[in-house]
Amino acid sequence: MKFRRKSEAAAEPEHAAQAPQEPGEAGDTSDSQPTAGSGPYDVSEVHDGLERVDVGALLLAPAPGFELRLQVNEETGAVQSVMMAGPDGAMEFQVFSAPRNGDLWSDVRPQIAEDIARRGGTSVEREGRFGTELACQMPVKREDGTDAVQPSRIIGINGARWFLRVSLLGRPAVEPESAQDWEDALSLVAVRRGDQAMPVGRPLPFVLPDNARRAQ
């Protein structure tokens, strides 16, 4: 997996940070590849022996054909977003603190839909592998200034005092029936909430992996 560092405003990475490949990572030719799980999991539930990449609040299992991209604030060094990218799309992760018991996804889903409508987009609910999700269409500007529409699928998963929000972009957003590889990768994700007290809805922090290094 490749780790790409991006400044907050940059459209393309200025620096790349690469971690040494381990058995089972993208590009490895061994037969030891992760298989789809029934997660996402709480980190306390993970006992499958898979080598996951630790980015703080998330532990991600390498998957063939995907690379991990981290958006990093060049001034502070803080990791601001985590994304898995492939040749036909991308999957962005956000994770938040949540109540011990409750359904935060049911609470925030209408708020997301309202925000999308306020910005000129549309969204409809659909049932998917992980429950109710939002299929969205957002107007955007291309680099040349012309108008376009960006499709996405937003998936929400309630966990043990955490809430995971996942946005699928590209082909897995417009062809959900062909997105099994993406959904399998999501099903292997583990979330580390931590024991500290924090308000509901606060983002859980990401960190640059210890074995990542900036390319020269």
Rank of each mutant, 00 (worst) to 15 (best):
I154D: 01
Q150A: 14
M138L: 09
L58P: 07
R118M: 09
D181N: 11
D28S: 15
N211H: 05
F130P: 08
D42S: 12
V53M: 02
R171W: 00
S81D: 10
E125C: 08
K141E: 00
V174Y: 06
R118N: 11
D48T: 05
A135P: 02
A63C: 00
R118A: 15
R119C: 01
A173R: 08
R126S: 09
E133W: 06
R153W: 03
E183Y: 14
L204W: 11
S97W: 07
L58R: 07
A190E: 11
A173E: 07
G56S: 11
L59P: 01
G77M: 02
A185L: 08
E133S: 12
R52P: 09
G49R: 01
R214L: 11
P172H: 13
M83V: 10
P110L: 04
A61D: 07
Q71N: 14
F3L: 15
D115F: 10
H47V: 03
R214S: 08
A117Q: 03
R109G: 02
D103G: 07
R126E: 11
E14A: 05
W105Y: 08
R4Q: 03
R69H: 13
P20A: 09
G49N: 08
G77H: 03
G159S: 01
V189E: 07
I154G: 02
L188F: 01
E114W: 02
D42V: 06
P34L: 06
A179G: 02
I154H: 06
A173Y: 03
V124T: 14
A212D: 08
G145D: 06
P40T: 01
S167W: 01
K2D: 15
L68E: 05
G56C: 10
Q94A: 12
G156V: 04
S123A: 13
E133F: 07
A10V: 05
L204H: 14
V46G: 07
W162R: 03
G56Q: 10
E183H: 14
A212N: 07
R153A: 12
R171A: 08
D28A: 13
S187M: 10
P40Q: 03
L50K: 06
N101F: 01
D28Q: 12
Q180L: 10
H15F: 07
D42C: 04
E45D: 10
K141A: 02
G65P: 04
P23M: 01
